[in-house]
């Protein structure tokens, strides 16, 4: 495989991994605080639609991003209300949010734009376009380093870099700050946090809202960065792949990055090699496209090593009687 193809493949992996990474870190904040969230998918979808719609109407990708974040955070609040305040079942709330987002985006989209649930095609400032780093032309002349700089490091849109920066930021917040200590504690033993005089409810809401924020960015990236507009069901299971990556990474930020890059890579391979043959056997396109989902199933079946979720995960906090 020559260098150019390798670089293209890696660049494409990175772009495809970005929404997964943002959603994965979103899930990490929520689940580390003890709130399981299978509604990542729905929040991303809602954000993708809202971002696409607002960007189309306003002509600004940034307004789209803010609107996407807002939509995602509203759903996050709903999940918080159901699972923290009302002490409901977190899985059911998550499923409900997925259905809600799936139905509402199609319905509102059709009523608003009359394009079969899609939002209008975005162009110019309505999208997040690739950012050329300084001296791209000059450094681009150098062999090996040049193409890497030009096509792998430079040239992505701002949200890709934001997603990458979120990894060390998440690590730092979780393991170096008071907020992170309490957040992790509340996911392991909320009783310990409560008896230490800290509000479990407030801590969990904070985590859920951060989750909403990051899902919002992930969704906005889909419709205003990676594509030029919203298409029905455009998340296509990315929220669930992000969950698989989260489990694979054992709820830790850096491994989450590697896990998401792996999924992004498989997706990139699936897109690029549609029609390769092994010997005389033609590998079906569908198989290549299914790769990330196959890996998801393998990981969730426990082949990714034993993953111990946060101990209080999935359970509402009720003071013992």
């Amino acid at each position: 495989m020559d260098l150019d193809i390798a670089i293209q493949l890696m660049g494409s992996s990175l772009r495809l991994a970005t929404p997964l990474l943002l959603a994965c870190l979103a899930g990490l904040f929520s689940e580390r605080a003890g709130i399981f969230d299978i509604g990542l998918e729905g929040k991303m979808l809602a954000a993708a639609f809202t971002a696409g719609a607002f960007a189309a109407v306003s002509g600004s990708a940034w307004i789209g991003l803010l609107a996407g974040i807002a939509a995602s955070m509203v759903l996050a609040l709903l999940h918080g209300l159901a699972s923290i305040t009302l002490k409901g079942n977190q899985l059911i709330s998550g499923v409900a949010i997925n259905f809600l987002a799936s139905g509402l985006t199609a319905l509102i989209g059709q009523n608003w734009f009359h394009q079969g649930g899609q939002t209008p095609q975005l162009s110019g400032s309505g999208r997040f376009l690739g950012v050329q780093w300084p001296l791209t032309e000059t450094i681009g002349q150098i062999p090996v380093i040049g193409p890497v700089y030009q096509n792998l490091i430079s040239g992505h849109n701002i949200l890709v870099y934001l997603a990458l920066l979120t990894v060390p930021a998440t690590w730092w917040v979780l393991f170096r700050t008071r907020f992170g200590l309490r957040l992790r504690a509340v996911g392991e033993n909320p009783g310990a946090v409560d008896t230490a005089g800290v509000s479990v409810v407030r801590q969990r809401y904070a985590a859920v809202l951060i989750c909403g924020l990051l899902c919002g960015v992930a969704g906005a990236y889909l419709s205003t960065g990676m594509s030029a507009g919203f298409v029905r069901e455009m998340t296509a299971g990315k929220g669930f792949i992000a969950l698989a990556a989260l489990i694979f990474a054992k709820w830790r930020p850096w491994p989450a990055l590697w896990a998401c890059l792996l999924f992004g890579f498989l997706e990139a391979v699936g897109i690029r090699y549609q029609g390769i043959s092994i010997g005389s056997l033609q590998v079906p396109v569908q198989f290549m496209q299914a790769l990330p989902y196959i890996l998801t199933v393998v990981i969730l079946a426990g082949f990714g090593g034993k993953a111990i979720p946060p101990r209080a995960g999935g359970r509402p906090y009720v003071k013992e009687r």
């Binding site: 992170g180 310990a192 230490a196």
Partner: peptide, 28 residues
């Protein structure tokens, strides 16, 4: 209070358990 069922965060270190809720600032 020392509760009958300990109110400890098991994956944390002793130090982290001791400061939980009694931290002096935003940084640990």
């Amino acid at each position: 209070m020392v509760h009958q069922h300990f109110m400890l965060v098991e994956p944390f270190t002793v130090l982290e358990n001791v400061i939980l809720g009694a931290e002096d600032g935003a940084l640990l």
